[in-house]
Each structure stands twice: as C-alpha cells, then as structure tokens.
Design a protein around this nucleic acid. Structure first.
Lengths: 202, 202
DNA sequence: TCATTTGTTTAGCGAACGACCAGCAAACCG
DNA sequence: CGGTTTGCTGGTCGTTCGCTAAACAAATGA
C-alpha cells in the first residue's frame, strides 16, 4: 500500500516533542493552540489533521512523556533486586528527572493540570488515572518483594506503604517546582526512606 | 468621618467568600471574571472597584484562605506541646481540611496554580512564596522543640526534616485531589510519622 | 494527461476572555 | 434644595480561545 496524496512536510514525532516542551512549561490550560502551532512550526489546522484536538494532542504528549521521562523511575522499580532498593532508586530517579537542567522542574503528570475550568474535566481525570496507576505500580512492586522474600508485611500495610511513597513522589514535584535543589530533594528522600525499617518490621 | 456617597449594596466579606469558593473549585486560571461576577452576585466592574484586578482579588482570597482553612494546621503546630506532637497534629489537621465534605478535596495553596500561562507568573510566584513559608514555619517549630528540650537534632537535620514533612503535606494534597479518603490519608500520615524516631535519634 | 487522494495554507468562525468607561442611582453635605 | 461623592449597571473595547471550511499544492493511480 503505497503512500497516496501529498506527503507530510513535517515530522510528527518532532512536532510532538515540541508540543511536549510547551505543555510541560505552561501546563494544559496555559498552552494555547497558537502557542503550539508556533512552537511546532505548523498551522493549527495541521495539528487538527495530524493529532485530532488539543486534548487528543495532549494525550499523545503524555504517552510520549511516559515513555521518556517516566521510564527511569519505572525502570528503577522494575530492575532493582529488592523492594527497598527499588523504592529508594525510584525516588532518586524521580528527583533526577524533576531537577534536570533542560526541562521544567516538576513532573508533568502531577502538576500539568490539577485544577482548572469545568470544560477540561476529562483531561484532569485522565491525568488522575495515570497518577492512581503510580500507586498501583508501587504496590505491585512491594507485593513482588513479599513473594521474593525480601519484604515481610501484611497486605493492608502494603497499600499504606505504597500510598505513602506515592505521596512523597507527588510532594517532591511541588518541592522542585518551588525551587528545591537536587541535594535538598535527596535529604527528603533520605528522611522518607528512614521510615522503611519501622514500616516493614511491624 | 461619616460615610459619603452611595453605600455599597453587597457585603465585601461575603463576596470574597464566594470568590474563594469558585477559585478553590477551578483554580486561578480556570476561573473567569464572568464566573466570579455571577457567583459573587455583582457585575465585573464592581469587582474592579472593590477589589482591584483579578490578581488582586485572588491575593485577598488567599489571605482569607490562610486565616480560615490554613489556621487549623498552623494552630496545631503552635499549640501542641512537643515538636513531634505538633508535626503529627499538623498533618492530621491538614488531612481534615482537604477531605472536608463541603470543600474541594485539595489545598488551594498547593494546587490552585502550580503551572500556567506566562502572563500569570506573578500569581504562581506569590503562591510559591507562601508554600516556602510552610517550610520555614515547620522548621521554626522544630527549632522550638530543640530549645524546649523535647527534640535533639543538628541544625542541618532540622532543615531536612522540615522539608520532608512539607513534602508530605504537599503530596497529601495531590492524594486527596485524586480521591483518597480521610482514612487513607491517615495511613500515609502514620507511615510518615514512622520516620520520626529514626530521624531524631541520629 | 488527468482525476483522485492527501496535506497545507489562509482566513475566519462564534464565543469567551480580562479590562474598562459612560451614565445612572443613591447616599451624604451645606 | 442643589452639589458632591461614591457605587452599580450595561455595554463594549480589542484580543484570544479552540476549531474548521475552503482553496491551493503535491503526490499517486489509471
């Protein structure tokens, strides 16, 4: 099936990355289609033709965000040998990501659209679902620690611990947004991990 | 000095509370002047006459928010006898505030405007300053614990602990925004307080 | 060659935005 | 009473919002 019609003159992947940069900087509602069109180097009508609506574009942007910036923390959870090491490494990978020199200092997933106009409710719930997935992912990793034998805790406690470290991740994003340095985030992570032994010895 | 001219037909305090409700529900950028005028029961021109600009109104709203919803956590810090009890009570008062039945489930200070359009940068920094005050307030309370003799920790550790519990507070707000219940927040707080003894015995 | 398909540009849609002014209304003063 | 001060309503300023129809451009297939 050969390509019919006039070929596209821009690269959708490149345009998506440029859209990501802008959404990351200004959030969902703070970014207008004119801003996007200018940053992506195409007319707004081309955005509609290629990506759908503003909301569709944002969802594709978040998918890209998840496979790039979101991957290091997820990989840390996956690859570290114990639940404790995985949690610790996940927190540090998160801190690395939200204090990078070339990107805004916060997690897009957490702060791109926590509140806003009523007509964007679907976008907020979309992000909320992704955030709730964080809790599930961490909880699953803790459960793996139990089956691996490196963690002993009742099921109810697993949920609490997972929610606790999810809360820390989300708080770190606000800290970074307010100018906390990587070193300061490290001290927070150290404090958060100080609870580990107490939580897992009960 | 008697009141000259036509007296005001609306109560500024009542109108401010109504503005608070709307800003709380939709955030800063998600709330339009038309929305505000409708909710406050006055024309937008009256808003300008009485409160200045949209940004001025928001700052007055945040002042009201600080003296109402913000007071219980602050009072907990102030009145509890020890640094530990103060921190614990502050966390619980925060959880109470962000899961109230009649208000949105998050802290306005934290989530009303974390990101947004460039022209609202001043508003974001205004809120960021208030959030940084949280860290200072908590740190001061910990320092009081040291002078009171109920807490022993080096100065550098005080800063880390204060930032840690500030981070937890901010994370709790995201948790509540995503639907976590008061009971679930309580489990997070229990986890967060589990770190206390380890942190203050070093 | 020429219709077809697809992408891009242009131009603009209706609605809402924040902001503000003119003019009227209602209180005070002398 | 007239004159002054102040507050409120209605309307409108120019801009921007997300979005789209129509015309044009560039490729393919027959």
């Amino acid at each position: 099936m050969a390509t019919r019609g006039r070929p596209r003159t821009f690269d959708p992947d490149t345009a998506l990355r440029q859209a990501l940069d802008l959404f990351w900087e200004r959030g969902y509602e703070g970014t207008s289609l004119n801003d996007l069109a200018e940053a992506m180097g195409i007319a707004s009508a081309s955005i509609y033709a290629c990506f759908g609506s503003k909301e569709d574009l944002f969802r594709q942007v978040m998918a890209l965000y998840g496979t790039t910036s979101g991957e290091p923390p997820r990989r840390a959870l996956r690859e570290q040998p114990t639940a404790r090491a995985a949690t610790h490494a996940m927190l540090r990978a998160t801190a690395d990501q939200i204090t990078g020199p070339d990107t805004p200092h916060y997690c897009m997933l957490i702060l791109a659209a926590p509140t806003g106009a009523v007509e964007n409710h679907a976008v907020r719930e979309f992000l909320a679902d992704l955030r709730r997935d964080m809790h599930t992912t961490i909880k699953d990793r803790l459960a793996r620690g139990v089956t691996d034998g490196d963690l002993t805790a009742p099921a109810a406690t697993l949920d609490a611990i997972a929610r606790y470290y999810t809360t820390v991740v989300q708080g770190l994003s606000v800290q970074a947004r307010d100018g906390a340095t990587r070193a300061e985030l490290e001290t927070v992570i150290t404090c958060a991990m100080a609870a580990w032994d107490t939580l897992t010895s009960g």
